[in-house]
């Protein structure tokens, strides 16, 4: 029982760390882009809000890093 729980937890954490770049793209890069643009007084294109634009960049970039294993 304990072993199964630990094993399931380990498996969950491995998956979590595998998708961490994607989460980082959404959780950190997207708001960082939005707040940096706000700091410099830049507008988002296509009438998007700053955070929507940030997510548009951060989420695919994080996904790319997850799949490719590198950020650039």
């Amino acid at each position: 029982m304990v072993y199964n729980t630990l094993s399931a937890m380990q498996s969950f954490l491995k998956k979590l760390f595998f998708v961490m770049p994607f989460l980082f793209g959404i959780g950190f890069i997207a708001p960082l882009i939005a707040q940096s643009m706000a700091e410099f007084g830049w507008e988002a294109p296509w009438g998007l809000s700053l955070i929507a634009f940030g997510l548009l960049i951060g989420a695919p970039w994080g996904l790319y890093a997850t799949v490719r294993g590198r950020w650039v």
Binding site: F24, F28, L32, Q35, S36
Partner: peptide, 13 residues
């Protein structure tokens, strides 16, 4: 990082 960023303190983080 995530908490600070989504609370408006991404640049500080």
């Amino acid at each position: 990082f995530f908490t600070m960023a989504w609370s408006g303190f991404a640049i500080e983080a």
